[in-house]
Design a protein around this nucleic acid. Structure first.
Lengths: 117, 117
DNA sequence: ACATTAAATTACTATATCACCATAGATGCA
DNA sequence: TGCATCTATGGTGATATAGTAATTTAATGT
């Protein structure tokens, strides 16, 4: 995008990253990590999820380089490693909000006089 | 993300948008439209795709509000409607490049002396 | 109205991804 | 070592998404 056409491999990489962010549960994980690192167990509690599921999603985020991992005794602490994700989400949120507002106004025009007059 | 926790519906919306961008073919479509509007046929040629496939992806992009559509005689012209996508892609590209560089350096450390001495 | 061109829709198969369950691995402590 | 806790991994079924072919819809021109 940034000016020049991207190579196929780069396109795949970029697409893969977008897909990584394309799961609500993973977005919630990232959201939960925004204020600081947390253990898997804490995230399981916070998000009311199943442990294996949480682990798997964290793995995916880790593979994408979005979160970092460190061991503390028995637990693993996950943390945001690339704060760019929040900038991304903000952009998308704004755009999505704009869109939903537009959709809404299509259904409910800011009527001077209603459709049925 | 943007400070406050998002509602479930908003999370779904945002995730859906990320998934929309999570297909290399759609990124190529957007890339092709960066310089200006194009007909479906032109995009089919440019990307060497099948017409129904191109149409379907364009439909998805249109549903997401990322491209606009207008008829010109027999053809339909598509155009970028939300240039934000390019900002998004740039962010992701930069981050992906950083990541790949890091991965590379892990495999090929900037050796003062090589591993085999 | 008919033929032609352009695009969208439908139907189908193949692949990918998710949630869930059971189980394995790793660490800490007695 | 043996047990408890925390996390990761493997397998399975359900769902979603992509790609392709066949068909339909829309517009143009004769």
């Amino acid at each position: 995008m940034s000016r020049l056409p991207l190579s196929d491999k780069m396109l795949d990489l970029v697409a893969r990253r977008f897909r990584t962010l394309g799961e609500p549960f993973r977005l919630r994980l990232l959201q939960s990590l925004e204020q600081g690192e947390k253990t898997v167990g804490e995230l399981v509690q916070l998000l009311d999820g199943h442990q294996p599921n949480v682990s798997k999603h964290l793995q995916i985020l880790h593979d994408a380089g979005l979160v970092s991992r460190r061991r503390d005794a028995n637990s693993i602490l996950y943390a945001i490693s690339d704060p760019m994700v929040f900038k991304l989400c903000e952009l998308v949120c704004r755009s999505a909000e704009k869109q939903t507002r537009k959709d809404y106004e299509l259904l409910h025009p800011p009527l001077q006089r209603s459709k049925r007059g």
